[in-house]
Structure formats: structure tokens, C-alpha cells
Design a binder for these strands. Structure first.
Lengths: 316, 316
DNA sequence: GCTCAATATAACTCAAGGTTATGCAAATTG
DNA sequence: CAATTTGCATAACCTTGAGTTATATTGAGC
């Protein structure tokens, strides 16, 4: 026996509202429409859903039992509507985001926290990776959003790149480091100190090699490598090691008052930190919202950095 | 946003079966039909339910979420179908049955037990009453089936009466009773013994009065009254009291070997025990089935009684 | 690049379900 | 008890959704 779910919804409405007229009003339809639908259901079942000859239309046992199912169906349909609404508003769904490890941990993690605070039903699937794998995953549809540095003219086919910060790197050390006090530093000054090396796959590693080549150090001493930002920070704080970090990463750690940057400008290929995403992935409202959130957060971060730098120029 | 439950069912089928073609097969419809229905749903939502450009038709997050609701709807509709089927087959529902207390307890209760054994999902609402209230409740629709004695020509308007047993009463006493051994009893022999009186509203009470009038006893001694069959039996077994009982009630208690009937025929108005029911209530399959069950049980009981009587005639 | 399999589209038909108008019967009321 | 009100059923009509078959289109795999 095949039963139309819509008929059960109508039945539930009529039973719950206490009559055809009220049920019709509740459903926004005409009374004859419901009357006929329920007649059709009764005919199909071959059994009465309502006591016949009773005016305030009282349900039979069967009618009451089927109305219960109708309520479930109505609830499920309403739930579906709500889900669709949430989804369309970017309030639910999953976002797959990845980026370079240090940057994700130091900068993006807190932005994700803010997003999840406002959108508790959104799932964030985070992972780590460098430009090449990020691009590949974006293009294959395995990733929604990636955060990484990229040269301005190297935006891959089918992807959008939204620049958010300058990709400037600095040499970081503990605040009490011998070099930290020096006003004028030459590159050769830093030669004696051991290095904390980024993973070799990291763009930072290339930058580090470039610096050391510039000061003509070939066999630099690596005191520590392979650690996350948390490990790197701990080691930096407890030693005179140096490392190379994106300025934004160092900036985010400014409140800890434990690390600082050497007053020396590093030259490297021009590039920007940016949000990389597949153009097609923006048709998912959550992803879109998440990207906008990141962009907004970065704009605000960039402002803060600018203020801070002006403040340090004008004193403090 | 209004969503058609049927669309969600289709969505669930396609997601679960892994494709439009398989989904169509599972639902017994054509593939283009589903294709268009889902397109309509997508259009209504303004959101894609399936990744576009993927051939084995893979659901998006939203599609998967809505499919879950579709599964619920499908389950509810299937449950409704099953309920309707059970109801039509008389396997579920409620039956309101009533009758005279002694008869219900001694005869009907075990028949109800048998019915419930075979139909665990049927609810039996039992109550007690005498002819007048039973008839009124049947006519008002407050009762489905009643069991009581009725004169053959007194079947009320709108009710059906199905005769099941002769409404013969007997005088009952304990097996060791002084009168139980006597072969030839006169009515006057029973005058000295005290009586257990049925409730005054009971037809048995009228019969008792008639008997006593026949033996010209006006102020008969009542040793006990107002008890259920269980109490009556206990008192009977422990004393030389007499009482009046339908023969069928006594017969049902034959295995206890504690009570017997005096060998004396009681005259009373002709009547039959029968199943009384509103003609309109038989449109409820459970009620119909329950009535048939009772009728069948009674037919078998009548056969047993006949055999037993023949056996007692031919010896034993 | 070709082939195969699966989905989308087209064109058409039919039935379900929407509407308004109206009839009819049960409840209510004086 | 008659009259009125109220609520459900029916009629007639129309729109829309959904079913069909035939066919175009497009990923996927070799």
C-alpha cells in the first residue's frame, strides 16, 4: 500500500487543528482541497480515517495512528527546510582549509576560533601543506581554501588569489638576544649564531638559504629543525638561536613579549600572503562566508600592524 | 521554504542507491522522472544537491543532509502503510468489550487471553455491566462488544445479537454438599440452606428470587453478597451455601473439582447468552476479528459441553 | 580520441490537486 | 422543535506537477 506523505501531513494538520477548516487555514490551502485529499487517502486505504457522521470531525484509531506518522513527516520536512536555510546562509556545512604550518598555527587558528564562535554548526577541516600540494588539492576539489605566500604573477589556472598581507619575512630571536639591542646590524653580524631551520619543503627554508648565501655562509649551523611554531618558540626563548619567520607570525606573538625581530631587512622574491581558492568552490555558502571572514580579519590585522609600526616610529 | 516530502524521498533513494538510474529502479519510476524532480528541488532551493560535472552523481553536503530527512520520511510513510495493513487485518487497534461480571471473569477472560496471545498489538478495554447499560453504551458508540443474556425477541434497535449458548442457570454448591449426593431433589429440599446472592442488578438475582418464590420462601437467608466469582467460589467451597450461576460458568470451573450443580432444573424466561454489538462497529476490522474469535471459541465450548453431558449420561 | 554508460532535455499526456461556488447535514440556539 | 449557524462534501473547472518515451549530451574509462 503506497501512501503519499503529503496526505499524511494533511491528516496530521486536520487532526491537530481540530477540523478541516482550521487545518486548511494552517496549511494555507482551501478546505475542499484537504477534504478531497483525505477522501482520496481513505479510498486508497479502504478504511475510514474519521468517524462518519460526526461534525467536529474526530479521527478513528487508524486516523490517529497515521496522523502520528504525518507529524513525523512534517517535522522532517521542516527540518530539511531549516537545514537548507542554514546551508544557504553559510551557517552550516564543512570547510576544508589548509596552509603553511607556522602561518596556520600562529595566525589562522585564532581566526578559525572566531568563526566557530559565531558559527558553531560549521565544521572546519584543517590541514597543513605548501603551495604545490595546496594548489593541487584545490584544483582537484579536495580543498576549499588555502593560505600561503605566492608570487603575484603565479596564480594558477582556475584559482583565485586574494592578497591579504605582504609576505615579508624577518629574522626572529629572543628579546634578550645580543643582536636584539644593536641599532645597526650587518648581515655578517648574524653569522656566528645557530639557526632553527624551517622544514626543507617550506618557502621559509629557501628564504633562509638565500640570506645565508648573501652573507656568504655556506655551512650554517642548524640547532633545531622540524618543529611546529610552538616548539620553535620555546627553543628560541631558551637559546640564542635565530630563525626566519613571516612578520605577521611574529606580530601575532607580540603580546608574549618574548620574541623580537632583528632590525635588518631581508631581500627575497616579491610575494604576498593570500587566500587561494577554487573559483567554483565559492558556490558553497559556508566557504564563501569563511573566506569573507578571513579577508575581514586580515584587513583588520593589516590595520593593526600599520598602526603599531607608526607608533614605533613616533616613539614608544 | 516549502519542500515536497516526495522530493526528499526521491533524493534519499538516489543517494542511497548510488545513482539516478538505480534510484529510479528502486522507486519503480523512470529515470527522467527523478531527474526532473530533483532539478525542481534544486531550483526551488537555489542550491545544488549534487556535485555538478561528476558522473556517478555524488551528493553535496546539503544533498546528504536532506537525504537523511528523506530517509526519515520514507520510514514514516512505510510505517504508516504497515499500520494501515495491520489495522485492516485486525491486527492492531482497540476493542471495548463489556459483560456481566461473573460471565466475563469465568468465561470470557480466558478467551481474551487467547486473542491477545495471537494479537499482541490489539488493546482490549474491558469493563462490566448489565444489559441495560450495555445496550445504551453500544448504541452511543462507547462500546464495541457486549456479552450478556437476552430474551430472543428483545434485540434492541441497531444492534446485532449473536446467540452463543443457552442461558441456562443452575444452583451451585460445593461438591461435598449434603444436597449434592441426592438423586431426586425437590425444590423444598433446598429451603434450609443460606444463599450467596448475586448483585441485585444482576439478572441472576431475578432468577434467584423466582426460584425462591417457586418454593414459597419469602425471607431467604443471604450469607454473602456482592462478591466477584472468585470470592463467591471461595465462600461456596468453605460452606454449605448455595448460589445461582450460569451453567457455562460452572462448566468452566469443572477442572477445579470443587463445585457442582444440584440435579434440579430451574425454570426461567427463555433467553440466550450472546454477543451483542452495534451493526456499525463491525466496520472496524479488530472488532470484527474479536467477535469472530469469541464466536469460534463459544462454538468450541458448546461442543465440549455437549460431549461432556453425553459422557455423563453414558456413564463416568 | 572513441566508446559506453549515465544523466539531462524535449515533447507530450494525464492525473493530482488547487480554486470558487454550492449543497447538505450535524450542532447549536432561542 | 424549528431555525440558524457551522462545517464538511461535492461539482465544475483549471493549473501544475509528474509520469512516459525518445533523444541529446557529457563524464569516465580504455
Amino acid at each position: 500500500m503506497q501512501i503519499d506523505p503529503n496526505h499524511l501531513i494533511i491528516l496530521a494538520a486536520v487532526v491537530d487543528e481540530g477540523g478541516l477548516t482550521q487545518g486548511a487555514a494552517a496549511l494555507g490551502r482551501s478546505q475542499p482541497s484537504l477534504s478531497r485529499s483525505l477522501s482520496a487517502l481513505e479510498a486508497r486505504l479502504g478504511l475510514p480515517l474519521f468517524e462518519k457522521g460526526r461534525r467536529p470531525l474526530i479521527a478513528t484509531e487508524l486516523g490517529a495512528a497515521l496522523a502520528a506518522q504525518g507529524r513525523m513527516i512534517r517535522a522532517a520536512a521542516a527540518e530539511a527546510s531549516m537545514q537548507a536555510g542554514l546551508y544557504a546562509g553559510g551557517k552550516t556545512g564543512a570547510v576544508r582549509v589548509a596552509g603553511t604550518p607556522v602561518f596556520m598555527d600562529a595566525v589562522i587558528a585564532s581566526m578559525i576560533a572566531g568563526f566557530q564562535q559565531a558559527n558553531p554548526n560549521v565544521r572546519i577541516d584543517q590541514s597543513y601543506g605548501y603551495a604545490d600540494t595546496l594548489i593541487r588539492d584545490l584544483q582537484s576539489g579536495a580543498l576549499d581554501v588555502a593560505l600561503c605566500p605566492l608570487p603575484p604573477d603565479a596564480v594558477p589556472e582556475g584559482l583565485a588569489f586574494d592578497e591579504i598581507l605582504q609576505g615579508r619575512n624577518v629574522i626572529a630571536c629572543r628579546i634578550g638576544h645580543p643582536l636584539a639591542r644593536k641599532k645597526t646590524l650587518r648581515l655578517s653580524d648574524i653569522a656566528p649564531y645557530p639557526w632553527i631551520a624551517p622544514p626543507t619543503a617550506s618557502p621559509l627554508y629557501q628564504d633562509l638559504k638565500a640570506i645565508l648565501a648573501e652573507i656568504e655562509v655556506d655551512d650554517f649551523r642548524v640547532s633545531f629543525s622540524g618543529g611546529s611554531i610552538s616548539a620553535v618558540r620555546t627553543v628560541l626563548e631558551g637559546s640564542d638561536s635565530l630563525t626566519i619567520l613571516p612578520y605577521s607570525v611574529l606580530f601575532m606573538m607580540r603580546h608574549h613579549k618574548s620574541l623580537t625581530a632583528l632590525d635588518i631587512r631581508i631581500r627575497h622574491a616579491p610575494r604576498h600572503l593570500g587566500i587561494l581558492s577554487a573559483k567554483s568552490s565559492s558556490d558553497r555558502p559556508v566557504v564563501r562566508r569563511f573566506q569573507r571572514h578571513l579577508a575581514h580579519e586580515f584587513k583588520s590585522l593589516a590595520r593593526t600592524i600599520t598602526h603599531q609600526q607608526q607608533a614605533s616610529v613616533w616613539g614608544v
